[in-house]
Amino acid sequence: MAKILVIAEHRNNELREITLQMLNKASELCRANGHELYAAILGNNIEGLISGLKEWADKVIVYNDPRLKDFNPDNYRDVLTALINEQKPIVTFLGHTPWSMDLAPGLSVKTGFPLATDCVDITMDSGRPKVVRQVYSGKIFSRMAFRDASGYLITVRAGAFPAAKAFDYQAEIIQGAMPDLVTQGRREFMGYRDTCKGEVDITQAELLVSIGRGIGEQDNIPQVQELAGIMGGTLSCSRPVVDKKWLPKYHQVGTSGKSVKPKVYLALGISGAFQHVAGISGAGTVIAVNKDKKAPIFRVAHYGAVADLLNVAAALKEKVSVK
């Protein structure tokens, strides 16, 4: 039986959401095409995580080894290359995360399998996958097929699929055999650093007033900050605002910032790049104000308004302070 392999991602002793999202899609594809679902997990002292995978796949292959304690693209690549060569899955899924941006290309080079990254949809078409990717920062979608190969590598966008169990499994746990690690020690892990620690905790807010590059200039920020204050909300922002050092990092929403879950997320002048939107999937209601009626944010928002954010902010300030 052909196999689909999902490489689990975890950090700080927790499975990452993306793992379950991939398993969700993979199991759906397996059921539809009569494939077997394999999950693989690499690390050290990860017994606790294995149980979390048990109900999600037919087989769980575990590499539990001190050399895999911290992520290292060389070691992980060698282990996974050995695994793929042995199991010959037709499709291998990884998350489209910084981690697999380091890992997947190596697998592709070593196995010779073609690689498609950051896919938001995957279908199987006579035994070969097809994917949908977003290009031009999400303004355009593209449907891509693979060249002929004996296996395919796909990285999956976070949030593209639900982290829900589609079917029940009782996985067989298999201990993987460690191969020789040839290029050890070129990249040494030194530790993690939290860049988002700060005075404001945007993850706990009920109402986030969030600004993007559309704010235009630093001088406009106090005005929105004040608005957030009057509304009893918290100010957050997209990455460019932090890159410009207009706000400290702990205000940033998105994949490299924080994931937030406010009841209402008011996005002002944010285009809706996926790295940003990925951070607001937990938001109850998203209201977007953008002067570009085609901004991708309107595709994820519940309510949208095509307007200049400064005008709307001024009007909001006026009306809220009156009431």
Binding site: T97, W99, R187, E188, R193, T195, C196, T255, S256, S259
Partner: peptide
């Protein structure tokens, strides 16, 4: 290396 959720991985590379 910028990871998700505001975490960075610090590494040393030869």
């Amino acid at each position: 290396i910028e990871l998700e959720g505001g975490q960075d991985e610090m590494s040393q590379v030869t």
